[in-house]
Write a protein that binds this DNA or RNA. Structure first.
Lengths: 138, 138
DNA sequence: TAATTTGTGCAACCGGGTTGCAAACTTATT
DNA sequence: AATAAGTTTGCAACCCGGTTGCACAAATTA
């Protein structure tokens, strides 16, 4: 649905260039979060820098959120239309050590943490590593 | 205290070479977790590879634990003598966006997460980003 | 002492991420 | 429509943390 792609970009105030539509389209079709190298491979030939910067603007404008899953490659997944990436809106991510896929556990919010006196939380990253439901067999 | 260094290494079954004693000594004197580049700088001249491998054996033998704080550089901090790095023993880490130091919030265990059906957790990484008590003023 | 294992040091490489700069394209202004 | 200003894209090159291969040194064992 091209329409929904454009709408997302409009909502988040990102100019809908061909490149951006394409990238967002790809991202929204994934069943797991992907990184720059993986995104790059989805194109016959595309410039890494452009994809890199596209991802960056998307993150800035909160079209997508980035996930540091500990693999050394930052992953990205689309945000909901209403997402503002506040700590309270954050969810847990899961990295499967077998299929090596990183997924959003959107239904699992990051639990509240009681920080020590005078600490201020701006962001929380929580990644569970293990076996996903598909790989946890046998 | 040289003695405690040697004891730690003995407990975790790591042969106490000069290099290892030195590295562990440095690590245990830190008030925050440090990465390979920062460790390297503590030496007038030292080989990155050796330090790298020293850290690696330390992590393998659970003398120290590694922390992915999202900066792109893996940080390390000493474990307690009895630590086995099980999920239940894990604590939250904090990264200050101002002083850029990563610290162990050893008193704050990682909360239990109710994973979806058939998921298996082997490890959990939880990093809070924000302002530490020192930097959160004014 | 010789043979084997373990640790250290150098060099070189890898790969994700990032920047500088110029060309292409878009938008605003006259 | 023509020009100027801003934005996006593409290429090349670089940075840096991490990692590997290989040879030498040190320690351990036979």
């Amino acid at each position: 649905m091209k329409k929904s792609i454009d709408k997302s970009l409009e909502i988040k105030q990102v100019k809908p260039t061909a490149m951006r539509q394409l990238v967002l389209d790809i991202l929204s079709k994934q069943d797991h979060a992907i990184g720059l190298p993986e995104l790059e491979m989805q194109f016959a030939q595309a410039d890494r820098t452009t994809l890199y910067r596209t991802l960056k603007t998307f993150v800035d404008k909160k079209v997508i959120h980035s996930i540091d899953d500990g693999t050394g490659t930052i992953k990205y997944a689309v945000c909901t239309d209403t997402c503002h990436c506040n700590p309270s809106e954050l969810h847990v991510h899961f990295y499967c050590i077998k299929c090596e896929k990183t997924t959003c556990l959107t239904d699992i919010p990051i639990p509240d943490i009681q920080l020590p006196e005078n600490y201020f939380a701006e962001n929380i990253n929580m990644v569970v590593k293990g076996l996903c439901n598909r790989c946890n067999k046998g």
